[in-house]
Design a protein around this nucleic acid. Structure first.
Length: 268
DNA sequence: ACAGTAACCTGTTTGC
DNA sequence: TGCAAACAGGTTACTG
């Protein structure tokens, strides 16, 4: 589920509900997530000073450190009345007075971690590549990265050390928009086409954020509404259907363990 | 340094 | 209908 647009949608939805508010309780119902959830009772009484996103991580800043949240494959965060009964997969609550921020994650690939250091220095974050919507992600940068390797271009743009936040859905859609075959070796694509791809990734992500992300199955925004970008998916999940541009049947195959869909006529 | 694979978990869909 | 296999938005850890 949650790629960059879904995490950013969540961040924007949650921010007005928790920024400046003091934590009044922490509930860990299931500590076995991607990594064990650490003790967090020291958050009681602490105010939220900032809420940021880095890659697909949500960073909730307090005076003495930062709570790092990741939604994994199936996670979502909701702002709910504090007395809402918890379901089977509601693993973690941060209570703020009569409201609570609740993590729901059936597959438990998500994470709740704590760091006392600047979050950018955390092991999981310090080695990440640039944000795709920042100036650092530009044609020269991606072309340089592409020249160093020879993996399929789809694997390159999904590699968090190259650029963050681009998961299977948005990599698939960006490559369609750029007219590049996802299996093409990344070092055999012209500078011009790589530059175009940078613009396409930006455009797809920005539009998806506008639409509140993509809801395929269970992604929910903080208030329970779905995203709407799935209505604009051109090839992802459409194997066998016709290309919206040329009418050719859309194909799909595994690239680096992930299903990838593309139009064999439009993408080379 | 790089590339490929297995692993972490559960729910839903697909195929026999 | 029932059951097992395959598959799903992510990322790390291990192997060669």
């Amino acid at each position: 589920m949650p790629e960059l647009p879904e995490v950013e949608t969540t961040r924007r939805g949650i921010e007005p509900h928790i920024l400046g508010k003091a934590v009044s309780g922490v509930v860990v119902r299931q500590p076995k997530l991607r990594w064990p959830v650490p003790p967090l009772h020291h958050l009681n009484g602490q105010r939220v000073r900032m809420l940021e996103r880095r890659a697909k991580y949500l960073l909730i800043g307090f005076k003495h450190g930062t709570l790092i949240l990741h939604l994994g494959m199936s996670g979502s965060l909701r702002v709910l009345p504090g007395d809402t009964p918890a379901g089977k997969h509601d693993h973690f609550d941060l209570q703020f007075g009569r409201q609570c921020l609740r993590l729901h994650d059936p597959r438990r690939f998500g994470a709740v971690l704590w760091t006392n250091r600047p979050p950018g220095e955390h092991e999981l974050i310090t080695h990440l590549g640039p944000e795709p919507l920042s100036d650092a992600f530009d044609p020269d940068y991606l072309y340089q990265q592409a020249q160093r390797r020879k993996v399929p271009i789809k694997q390159l743009v999904m590699d968090g050390k190259v650029v963050v936040g681009v998961g299977n859905i948005y990599a698939t859609e960006s490559l369609f928009l750029a007219g590049i075959n996802p299996v093409r070796a990344c070092n055999r694509i012209s500078r011009k086409r790589i530059g175009n791809l940078v613009g396409c990734i930006r455009q797809v992500l920005a539009r998806a954020i506008e639409q509140g992300g993509t809801t395929l199955r269970d992604f929910q925004r903080e208030d329970g509404r779905p995203g709407y970008f799935q209505q604009e998916l051109r090839v992802y999940g459409r194997e066998g259907e016709t290309c919206p541009v040329c009418g050719t049947a859309i194909r799909a195959r595994q690239i680096g363990q992930r299903t990838s869909a593309w139009c064999p006529h439009c993408q080379h």
